[in-house]
Design a protein around this nucleic acid. Structure first.
Lengths: 354, 354
DNA sequence: GCTTGGCACTCAACCCAGACGAGTGCTAAA
DNA sequence: TTTAGCACTCGTCTGGGTTGAGTGCCAAGC
């Protein structure tokens, strides 16, 4: 698969010689696989070139510079956040997504629904399974959401239901207040009038529409004002909408045997607001971004990592997709899988957009 | 508050004399509060009428008939599923929903959105908080879903987007295949034609519509067939849609310190399908139904209880709402809270229906 | 005949000490 | 610079002893 991600600029890496790199890589690989602190002896059988004593010396210096941690004096070594960072930036060989995993995802995408929301939900389920972690998906953010179609349905004397089809076939509904009773015929007339004018406009474009002069000019003005207000709310909401799936996947990872830790993480995931801030702050122009442990800046996630990327539907429309799991995560596998799902989602959303 | 629920007919209850009842009730109350097996001595201070020895004898017979369980020889007693059942059916005094709890829920319902889905989501959040458990909400099932409004939006040469506003302001969208290219004007014409005929009809009513004879009769027929098919799918989906919230609430209950148990329960909750079957099988004509432990018939939920009720929006439209928590649950509080939220949801959905 | 004080008994939970062993750091020799 | 050797550390496991909550049963009392 492709080259490893670029180094994160916020960490100053201590340069390592060839041998130290090889040892660090072996430690990460071993620990990721077993979950048990790895000692010099077990490394010596894999890296047969050097004796356990030599490796021991190297481990000591790797600990000194902060890439490894010793849970206690007589225990093996565990990668630190910094160690994972170095691994991810310089040592990791990304693995292709195995055909078996691709095939497992096919049923999810076979359904292929029209609405963007449904696609995202399916993607969340597929990614959660493929990465064996919690998946996170944001709605595609269009910098200015454009109207594709709108309709007005009479609810009662005082209210009408606005149905807004936005680009991407996102359907939004909202109740509008009518100043005075209006029957369905009037509403339909206004709707078709607006459809002629407003299609392709975003909320600011809508605000610049020429004042209406038709029979129902007064009502129309009021409604347009409310539509603009509602679209602004939609714009804001889009940023914070996060789907998630796969909390159950955390449970068979031994690091989450600690109920308190589990509690904190689930709280963060269910309270989508906090994640939204984190995700929108992520710098996603560089392919897959990996945030390891404390790098996320959230204390609750200090033992978790995020692997995020952007999916693109068309030129300017993009959303974020990724996973949240333990820092002890198979980064070499997860990155490509996130990227793979992002591609499929991008294509599916793009198709729904057409 | 109201009378306790009616006895479940599927359990044959051993009749208990006054004193045994009082003791059983005290055991349930104590255990619910503390989570620790309760012994004769601590009961004797509450029920000062009898000595610990007398209570000890009674506890022994309550264990014999299966209402209490002893975790081990030198431990106190814990209510069995049957014990909780007897308590719930005959002994429980339901508690009013405290003003503080009502007030805590107000912000949730203050928003009061138009769409049924949003209402349900909010209700799930409010109930999860009020009951300190996982909340479950199904969409209101209308025996035949009726069309309120429909619209067709051109997607591309081969497809149009159907927007269906159903009673309850449920908005559904679906892509329809056009036999031949049709521009938006044609689609709008068909849509307004159908709106004149189809409003108030359910899928079977739609099937009985007289054959169209207009200019676009051929296309219209094809579209109506697809609309009917889609509505049938909607009908089926409605049964299985379950919202949930509050998994985090399980985590601070000591019974879920066992990670395996937690795993099973979360799996069941995230895999909504299994719950759907259970909920639809529930007999909800009797107010609040309480399913205790193994009564649910699901091995994974053998240490959980469900408290479910129906919310009614209008005469024939109803959905299910309730909570899933540990068998050691404050049934006397949870029942009324579920009922309270059900009332508010019913009213809100009813309003959205208008 | 029911109630109750007394008492022997049980058993999980807790604590402590010792053995074990994985893994280290250091040193001295190759 | 590498490596074999060795003393040392420290978490984990094991087993025994103690504690205490709570029981069941019995015999005396109301």
């Amino acid at each position: 698969m492709g080259a490893p991600s670029q180094p994160a600029s916020n960490v100053q890496n201590v340069p390592l010689d060839q041998r130290k790199q090889q040892i660090l890589k072996a430690v990460v690989a071993d620990y990721t696989r077993t979950g048990v602190p790895v000692g010099s002896a077990s490394l010596a059988v894999h890296l047969a070139t050097w004796s356990s004593a030599t490796i021991r010396n190297e481990l000591a210096t790797l600990s000194e510079v902060g890439y490894l941690i010793q849970p206690h004096t007589s225990a093996g070594r565990v990668p630190s956040d910094l160690g994972y960072r170095y691994y991810v930036d310089f040592l990791m060989d990304e693995e292709d997504v195995p055909p078996a995993v691709r095939r497992q995802m096919d049923p999810f995408f076979a359904v292929m629904p029209t609405s963007v929301e449904d696609i995202l939900e399916i993607a969340a389920a597929a990614l959660a399974q493929a990465a064996d972690a919690v998946s996170l998906v944001t709605a595609p953010k269009a910098l200015g959401v454009r109207i594709k179609h709108l309709d007005l349905v009479r609810l009662n004397d005082g209210q009408a239901l606005l149905i807004l089809v936005l680009e991407g076939n996102l359907v939004r509904q909202h109740a509008l207040n009518l100043g005075a009773p209006a029957d369905q015929a009037v509403l339909s007339a206004i709707a078709s009038g607006l459809n002629a004018l407003a299609v392709g406009l975003d909320s600011t474009g809508l605000a610049r529409l020429p004042e209406s002069v038709g029979t129902h000019a007064q009502l129309e003005r009021e409604l347009v004002a409310q539509i603009i207000a509602f679209m602004t709310v939609c714009d804001a909401q889009q940023d914070t909408l996060i789907l998630h799936d796969g909390v159950r996947n955390l449970l068979h990872h031994p690091e989450f045997g600690d109920v308190d830790l589990l509690h904190q993480v689930i709280e963060v995931v269910e309270e989508e607001r906090m994640l939204a801030a984190l995700i929108s702050a992520a710098d996603l122009d560089r392919g897959v971004q990996i945030m390891i442990g404390r790098e996320s800046g959230m204390a609750e996630l200090s033992r978790c990592s995020l692997v995020l990327t952007t999916y693109r539907a068309g030129a300017e429309r993009r959303g974020t997709i990724g996973v949240l799991g333990s820092t002890r995560m198979a980064y070499a596998q997860v990155g490509p899988r996130v990227r793979y799902v992002a591609q499929r989602v991008g294509r599916a959303v793009g198709r729904a957009l057409s």
